[in-house]
Structure formats: structure tokens, C-alpha cells
């Protein structure tokens, strides 16, 4: 038996906040369930923290076969080393073939360090996961500039961080049965001590993810005032691609995409955005998408409902007129 074949099962690392599993982790349960069914293995969820209440049962209702629960006051708030230690030990012991994390600050802090200790591959910002059943290999699909790339890992477990918002949470079924495994660990406090936590103030964080209408600006639009006017006519807010916020034309809190916000407004108008993969992952689940770009072949049109090939600085004023009329 090859070493690789000793690894079986799909694992999902679950995060929670205010006694609730976060949406990104529920989405992982959707993906993980699909993979586990395809491979005919169990879907296990890893849950760490303190005073976890009914969260383990919830995870079963959302599709977990097994929930590993590690409860300890030291784990109440995430710090790298205790989480890292527990996770590495559990993976070594149970040998899952796939371990999934959500692309969150926690996931991106923890997953690379775990992958490093286990000397295994990790892909980042996956937007889709498929299974090559013949080789029992996870196809990890990530944005690669304007393209998509398929990444595979030759070692086990295969680890991936998955972009939130790429799928829907599974349906909750409170008749589902599963197994809760409480694991006892001798946990040392980590080498990092949390001394203060403060909520971000309103002015630091433009909550564009809550807006119903977003007018998003890319490099094809030179005049921000046009976009502002359109947004105000529509009662929406401005969003931007990374080059725009990097050039300081709009604040960073308005950046949409892989490194920025993931948004799902009812209406998304992409103005002069070509549609790099990193941007698309942040907006593709919007309700109705309108794209305006000079290049008919721009990838943005592949995710849009309405496409206008033209100069955005001409189209916007005309659109404003029509909307007012």
C-alpha cells in the first residue's frame, strides 16, 4: 500500500463567531459533503474553541458525519500555536486525504503553517473544487490573473483555502445523525498573548458588502465623478478593483475581490472592469450584473447578465439620463 493510500476522508475546519458557525465554513460543508460522497468517505468537521454549546450538533445538521470537538478556555480566541499544534496532531493521527479551510484571516494564518509542518501542498483562494476520481486527486481551481488554474498536490493531505461566497450553505436538516468526538488535549497557552480587541470604527470600514447596488470602477474609467453620479442616481455605493484603490482613487475599504470584499448586491454595474479572476471571485454572485467595457472579449462579460461594449465615460452619462427619465 502506497503511503498516499493510507489517507482517507474529507475534513473541514470550522470557524464560529457569536455562537454561530460562520457562513464561509457552512459553504465548506457544502463542498466537503459533495467531495466526501463522491469519494465514499466520511465528512469530518474540526471545531475548536470554548463554550461551544450547540455548535457541534449544528454542524451535523449541516452535513457533518463526524465532528471533532476540542473545547478549552485557551482556545476561546484563536492564536496560532495551540490551534496549529492540535490540528497537526489530529491530522497525523487520522490521516484525512483532504483538509479544507475558508479564506479568512484565521484560515490564512493557520493553514500555511499546518501545511508546512506536514510538508504538504496548500492552494489558496480556491473558487471551485473538483475530484479526479481515477487518481483520487483533488483539483483545486484558483483564479490565476485573468484565467483560472487547476492546482494539484502530490502529497497528502491535500489542503486548500476556499474563497467564501463561491457556493451556498447546505440545507439544515435537524434530523441528521452524526458522531461527536470530544478530543482531550493537554493544551499549552501559545507564544502569542492577546492583549486587546477592538471593533473597527465605522469610518474605517465602508460596508459595501451590505449595499443593494454597487457601481464598481476599474481602470477603464478615468473620471470617478461619473461613477459617483451613477451610484447616487441608483442609490448605491461605489466599489473598485485593486488597481483603483492602489492608485488611491478610492479607499481600500471599497476594494472588491480576492484580497478585498466579497459582495452580493442585487445590482452590480462593472464600469471599465476587464474582469481579472481576482476581481470576479468577489462579485460573481451578485444578483444582476451589468458590464460596460471597450473590449468585447473581456472576461467580465462571462459573468454578466447585460453587456455593453463601449466607452464607459460615454455610456454612463447616457444611462444616467435614461434612469432619470
Amino acid at each position: 500500500m502506497k503511503e498516499m493510500d493510507r489517507y482517507r476522508g474529507v475534513w473541514v475546519f470550522a470557524e464560529w463567531k457569536d455562537s454561530q458557525v460562520i457562513k464561509g465554513s457552512l459553504e465548506l460543508l457544502s463542498l466537503g459533503r459533495g467531495l466526501a460522497d463522491e469519494l465514499q468517505v466520511e465528512l469530518s468537521v474540526l471545531l475548536m474553541g470554548d463554550r461551544l454549546g450547540g455548535i457541534p450538533e449544528e454542524l451535523i445538521y449541516y452535513g457533518a458525519d463526524v465532528v471533532y470537538v476540542i473545547e478549552n478556555p485557551i482556545l476561546e480566541r484563536y492564536t496560532t500555536s495551540p490551534y496549529h499544534r492540535i490540528l497537526c496532531d489530529l491530522i497525523r493521527e487520522n490521516k484525512p486525504e483532504i483538509v479544507l479551510f475558508s479564506t479568512t484571516h484565521l484560515g490564512m494564518d493557520l493553514a500555511p503553517r499546518v501545511a508546512c509542518e506536514l510538508k504538504t501542498g496548500l492552494s489558496a483562494h480556491c473558487v471551485d473544487l473538483k475530484m479526479d476520481k481515477e487518481n483520487r486527486q483533488l483539483l483545486q481551481i484558483c483564479p490565476y490573473f485573468d484565467y483560472m488554474a487547476t492546482i494539484v498536490t502530490d502529497t497528502r493531505p491535500q489542503m486548500a483555502t476556499v474563497q467564501p461566497g463561491i457556493t451556498s450553505p447546505p440545507r439544515r436538516d435537524d434530523s441528521r445523525q452524526g458522531k461527536t468526538v470530544r478530543v482531550e488535549f493537554k493544551i499549552e497557552p501559545g507564544d502569542i498573548k492577546i492583549v486587546e480587541v477592538e471593533a473597527k470604527k465605522e469610518e474605517d470600514t465602508e460596508k459595501i458588502e451590505e449595499a443593494d447596488v454597487i457601481v464598481a470602477v476599474g481602470r477603464g474609467l478615468k473620471d470617478m465623478r461619473l461613477a459617483e453620479e451613477l451610484a447616487s442616481v441608483l442609490g448605491g455605493v461605489l466599489g473598485a478593483t485593486q488597481p483603483i484603490t492602489e492608485a488611491g482613487l478610492l479607499q481600500e475599504s471599497r476594494m472588491i475581490g480576492q484580497t478585498g470584499k466579497i459582495v452580493q448586491p442585487k445590482l452590480y454595474i462593472a464600469c471599465g472592469i476587464s474582469g481579472a479572476g481576482q476581481h470576479i471571485v468577489g462579485m460573481q454572485n451578485s444578483g444582476t450584473i451589468v458590464a460596460i467595457n471597450t473590449d468585447e472579449k473581456a472576461p467580465i462579460f462571462k459573468v454578466a447578465d447585460y453587456g455593453i461594449v463601449g466607452d464607459v465615460s460615454k455610456v454612463i452619462p447616457a444611462l444616467i439620463e435614461s434612469l432619470k427619465g
Binding site: L122, L139, Y144, D146, T150, I289, P299, K302, A304
Partner: peptide, 14 residues
């Protein structure tokens, strides 16, 4: 341990 096996244009979702 990781390698890129394929690079492709995203398919139209809508």
C-alpha cells in the same frame, strides 16, 4: 508539493 496542471479561461457563468 503543489503543481499547476492546467490554466484555462473562465467559462461563462451567465
Amino acid at each position: 508539493p503543489t503543481r499547476i496542471t492546467k490554466v484555462f479561461a473562465p467559462e461563462a457563468k451567465r
